[in-house]
Amino acid sequence: MSETLLRVEKLDVTFAIPKRGALPWTKPHYLQAVSKADLTLARGETLGLVGESGSGKSTLARAIVGTIRPAGGRVLWRGQDLTQYTPAQRRAHGRHVQMIFQDPLAALNPRMNVGQIIAEPLATHRPEIGATDRRRRVGEMMERVGLLPNLQNRYPHEFSGGQCQRIGIARALITEPELVICDEPVSALDVSVQAQVVNLLGALQKEMGLSLIFIAHDLSVVRHVSNRISVMYLGRIMETGPAAAVTATPAHPYTRALISSVPIPDPKLEKSRHRPILKGELPSPMNPPSGCVFRTRCPIARESCAEARPPLEPAGPKHDVACPYHDEVEAVETAK
């Protein structure tokens, strides 16, 4: 658990949004999707990334995988800066980092059969493996993820959502990567199938010593699978720490609101508890609030919050939070 596999330092991702109907040489609007994000991930560890839609979780993940070019910062893989890689080096690096997608069917090419889909990373990174050997390995991998290996010549649309997600997992694991980024892998699935897929991921992680970055907006799933959790809001990391600490004693007011929004399956408890409901909508990332981006919706916001962006500071062992007033959250909420 000690060896650091991936370190993300001050990562910025900016999108240029051309003004509607403007001449081609006018400056576009810029949308800062991820701003100065820091992450570390140890070997074999699972990092949960939570936040509401539009908080930049998926963008951060794509910047790590390399399908989006970051505007600043570094992505260090075992100390090597991936942002300095040439495109060819970057492609070769795909062998070590794979991704699982939210919509299981959309992530599979409808014109290719399952065997071809799962074999593609292998054909890309291990071209020396012959066709028969490749087919055998694909069959083995299908068995490991709970698919019948004789379904290799089937097409994606013949499978259910859960089965498609297993195909996606098989494709991600066939090159024996060290890091798998799961972008909301279970959000599109039924609850019973969610459990199957989450358990499958957990079992394969133990078997293969994988590190996972698990993106979700469902805290109950993230709490179940993660060692550590980072909470994102409007492209910034608000809180990061061990899963138990973040969910049991959340320090940031935003995390507290997120956790209180998870329903408790007991009507009496659910009625009796205090729920700080967030007012308003997520501000536009084109024009984020000054200072702390959460201040427009924060129950304990004060004038000084608008001045400077609060840095991550320790709130417990390995538990950092980007709110200087986090000790006062409890007092304010009970007073209400």
Binding site: V65, G94, F101, A106, A107, P110, M112, E120, P121
Partner: peptide, 20 residues
């Protein structure tokens, strides 16, 4: 589409992505 993104993330060569 996500399957194209999956191929890019895997590191498939752009011309192969276009053809396949």
């Amino acid at each position: 589409k996500e399957f194209v993104e999956a191929a890019i993330a895997t590191g498939v060569h752009p011309f192969r992505i276009i053809l396949r």
